[in-house]
Design a protein around this nucleic acid. Structure first.
Lengths: 134, 134
DNA sequence: GAGATAAAGGAAAAAAATTATCTTTTATAT
DNA sequence: ATATAAAAGATAATTTTTTTCCTTTATCTC
């Protein structure tokens, strides 16, 4: 029993081999698209269907086991839920990295005369990653 | 000749009646989904096809006449391009508002040890709007 | 550990979203 | 006014995502 079995169960998800594999791929790659996930899964389960990928990602989203990252001008990627954080996306290679942004400070400096009660922030920076600069 | 004819042309877009109508709808509603835009357009052009909506939104995106706003847990909306700004999205009613965030200040306060060259930021706050609080 | 059961997987189809094709119409430059 | 490139309309085709139905399996209980 690896460590993700219990984590899946804590999110009301049965620990099937397929889900453990999805979890491993997410853990290994950090941020993955549906297509990439499907391709990787095919290596282990040669008859897995895309519907199973979608069904799992959807139920994992519902149970907050994974999060969707919506990226400007690009397809969404999915990641295991962890501490709140933001993202850096490379315009050149598409790589996605995590970054911590002081949301609290931002809110203090933002003029919110609109009386909108802000609960969370989704921040995606785009630019050029270290590797692509060289 | 209303004021959007010239603006369309400046973006290398022919000022067709359909495009002027799309522009009016975007201007009037601020942020609209593809479906909403289609429904509104049907009022004026009873035989317009969804393909025309997509073709126009896509070419308007390419020519930076409109921008796509990707919203967590929801479908994208589109807006006329204006000064750089961020968005507030109400979890309750789905309304989208503009807000100005001091991105520059954020960057100064963000620890970017990853040597990532940030060029732009997409920020979407979610919470409860003024109307839904009452 | 064996049996019961609710949930998950596989396969295929269906539905929804998006893009492409081809012909007709039209905005715009000349 | 005419020529022309681009856009619209009408489908059709693709792509993406969801659903259905039947089989398999993870997990709970004994």
């Amino acid at each position: 029993m690896n460590n993700y079995t219990e984590l899946l169960r804590q999110h009301n998800l049965k620990a099937t081999p397929q889900r453990l594999a999805i979890t491993d791929i997410l853990n290994m790659h950090g941020h993955v698209s549906i297509e990439f996930l499907y391709e990787q899964m095919l290596n282990k389960f040669n008859s897995i269907s895309l519907a199973t990928i979608y069904k799992n990602i959807n139920i994992m989203l519902e149970n907050a086991f994974v999060q969707e990252v919506k990226i400007p001008h690009s397809k969404s990627v999915y990641e295991l839920t962890k501490e709140v954080h933001s993202h850096l996306v490379c315009d050149n290679c598409g790589a996605v990295q995590d970054i911590t942004v002081p949301i609290h400070t931002i809110l203090e400096q933002t003029d919110n005369t609109q009386e909108f009660e802000i609960k969370s922030a989704s921040v995606v920076f785009t630019g050029i990653c270290k590797e692509c600069k060289n």
